[in-house]
């Protein structure tokens, strides 16, 4: 409200962001710690990063995770863009309530339920667990995020541009590819990036639907982390955090100053 920020705001911002970032900062710091004991500082080193890249199991899991994430998020972006477009531009249609329900429910659905139900479906269909089931599962929950992002981007534009193009004789497909798609492209790109990180991050659902040959990075990290803190995992986490930070900065750059809570 005022141009001047009060002491209250300074304290809230300071404490809030310290709480959000201190644990991550400590994790990153200790990935450079030259000591087997994770809480004792033994000087700077890069050796955990070296051991990380020499760890075949982890590297293999990283490859599986990346392949799944790229395919799943591409699929999710296509499906989610269609769904977001349908919700924002196609007005009423039969089963719209169910449709928007199916888009929103996965955003809050506990992961154990999603994971269990998808696995049981794959078993009922006798589809073997592996890459395919991981991709189908990840594409399904990610497409809902894409749909929401695309829908809100579309809701921010008035229809007059599309209508003008129609009046000038453009076919619907032309309107979509020449006008609508360029308009929503930032949201589509941001949706892809979001899907990518969601897929990269997923542990619980992957635990249900992955097979012996398709162990993902989060599953590997989780099984090591359960045994305690390890500097190697700190190093791996640091790399992942760095990648995600880059991605998020890129996404917010494409989104420019629109989206992400600026419109609701």
């Amino acid at each position: 409200m005022n141009k001047q920020m009060g002491w209250f705001s300074w304290i809230a911002l300071g404490l809030g962001f310290t709480f959000l970032y201190l644990p991550i900062f400590i994790l990153v710091l200790y990935s450079f710690n030259d000591s087997k004991l994770v809480t004792v500082w033994g000087g700077w080193t890069l050796r955990w990063y070296g051991e990380l890249f020499a760890n075949d199991g982890l590297m293999n899991a990283a490859r599986v995770t990346l392949i799944v994430a790229v395919i799943a998020s591409t699929l999710a972006t296509v499906l989610g863009t269609l769904a977001g477009f349908a919700l924002a531009r196609l007005g009423r249609f039969k089963g719209r309530t169910l449709f928007s329900g199916m888009i929103l429910a996965p955003l809050v659905m506990p992961e154990v339920i999603t994971g269990l139900s998808l696995l049981l479906t794959f078993v009922a269909l006798s589809v073997d667990r592996g890459f395919l089931t991981l991709i189908l599962a990840h594409a399904t929950f990610s497409m809902c995020y894409v749909a929401v992002v695309v829908q809100s981007r579309l809701a921010g534009f008035d229809l007059s541009v599309e209508e003008a193009a129609m009046d000038l004789g453009a076919k619907p497909a032309t309107v979509f590819f020449r006008i609508t798609l360029p308009l929503i492209l930032p949201a589509v790109v941001a949706g892809w990036l979001l899907s990518f990180t969601l897929s990269l991050d997923d542990l619980v659902i992957a635990n249900f639907v992955s097979g012996p040959g398709s162990t993902t990075l989060p599953i590997k990290i989780w099984s090591q982390v359960r045994l305690g803190v390890s500097p190697e995992i700190n190093a791996l986490s640091t790399i992942l955090i760095g990648l995600v930070a880059l991605g998020a900065v890129a996404a917010s750059y494409v989104q420019k100053r629109r989206g992400w809570g600026q419109e609701a």
């Binding site: 991550i24 989060p218 990290i221 989780w222 305690g228 986490s237 955090i241 930070a245």
Partner: peptide, 18 residues
């Protein structure tokens, strides 16, 4: 937003050491 994009697992893991 950044922590929201960062791995959930890693953020929970960070607290074990603390």
């Amino acid at each position: 937003i950044l922590p929201f994009w960062t791995s959930f697992l890693i953020r929970v893991y960070a607290w074990i050491g603390i």
